[in-house]
Amino acid sequence: MNRPTNIQLYVTPPQECSYLPERDAVSIFVEPGTADNPIYSHLIRHGFRRSGEHIYRPACPGCQACVSVRIPAARFKPSRRERRCWRRNRDLAAHWLKGHYAPEYFDLYQRYLAARHPGGGMDNPSPAQFRQFLLSHWSETLFLELRLEEQLLGVACTDLVDDGLSAVYTFFAPEASDRGLGNYAILQQIELAKRLHLDWVYLGYWIENSPKMAYKRRFRPLQGYQGDRWRELAEEP
């Protein structure tokens, strides 16, 4: 595909960082209303990400803590922990569907946010907020349903781009937290990428000092976008 041209970018004013205390965050955004999947497919290879309709990348002065990371699907080798996670969830039915709003999804999304982010500004969502955050009129978005018989236990929102899959967000039943459904959803995305002969599974941003993001570092091999190029991240000791 030809490289997109005339991509207009805008810089946001500084605001409080959601991940690192006492720091300000600045992002660059693609001009609203001009994004499409070819533009996204190009920019995700340069460290960008999607939130709803918006494509953005952190651009904080003097800080490079947010590192875009991706898994090379064909080279991925599951660890012992990941093999256990796969076996633990082999009783679940996994189905890929076109991304869409459904009351059943929203109910699960509400319960997940109330349990995981109480008082954090995300725990009282509306159906409109669900759509604005997870869906986009221009993206090729898929939902992975994870069910135990008829019970919906988890949903993973994933974008299909030219060279891979981009993990947007995963939510699951709080009472099923022992299953490791977030990790299991990534394993399912790697399997789908392999079946579709896609190169990468993009995991969004990883911050070394953020415990909430530590799980991303466990997937191996893993590449990070640093210094305007993708580099293999060294194995943790």
Rank of each mutant, 00 (worst) to 15 (best):
A93Q: 15
F48P: 01
G204P: 07
R87E: 08
A214D: 11
H100C: 12
Q64G: 14
V155H: 04
G154L: 07
H42G: 01
R147C: 12
E140L: 14
W138R: 03
G62V: 09
V155T: 04
D228Y: 08
H137W: 04
G52H: 03
L148A: 12
L142I: 03
Y101G: 08
F48N: 02
C63A: 05
N6S: 06
Y10K: 08
V168K: 01
C66S: 13
D159M: 10
P78N: 12
E22K: 13
R217M: 14
A35I: 02
R111Y: 05
H54Q: 13
R81M: 11
R231L: 15
S68A: 15
T141C: 15
F133K: 00
R217A: 15
G119N: 12
Y10N: 05
P221A: 12
L222Y: 13
L135G: 06
R231E: 15
L108H: 05
G119D: 13
S18G: 15
A94N: 02
L233S: 13
Q15I: 01
P72D: 07
Q226Y: 03
D36K: 04
H95I: 07
G52Y: 05
P174D: 03
S166E: 08
R88G: 00
G224D: 06
E145C: 06
Y105Q: 02
E145A: 04
V69Y: 09
W230G: 05
R88V: 00
S177C: 10
Q189G: 06
S139C: 15
R217C: 12
M122W: 13
R23Y: 00
Q129A: 15
V201C: 12
L148P: 01
P72R: 11
P58I: 05
E175S: 11
P72S: 06
D107H: 11
H100W: 01
S79I: 09
I28L: 14
W86S: 10
A128V: 09
F171M: 02
G164S: 10
E235S: 14
E16H: 10
L187W: 00
A25W: 00
L233P: 13
S126P: 05
R131K: 13
D162P: 00
P211D: 07
Y112N: 03
L43K: 02
K98I: 03
G99L: 10
F76W: 08
S210C: 15
G121Q: 09
T5F: 05
N183L: 05
R87V: 02
C157L: 02
L196F: 06
R179W: 06
L203I: 04
Y101M: 08
P38E: 09
Y225E: 02
R23V: 00
R87D: 04
C85W: 02
L148Y: 12
S177T: 06
G204A: 04
L160E: 09
G62N: 11
D159N: 08
L113I: 00
V168E: 06
L192K: 10
W138T: 04
P211C: 10
R87Q: 13
E145K: 03
A128E: 15
E53S: 14
P127Q: 04
R23N: 07
V161I: 14
R88L: 10
C63Y: 01
V155A: 07
C157F: 04
H46F: 15
I28W: 10
Q188Y: 00
R23L: 11
A185D: 02
S126K: 08
C60A: 00
Q223I: 01
R84S: 05
Y184F: 15
Q151Y: 05
D107G: 08
C63W: 00
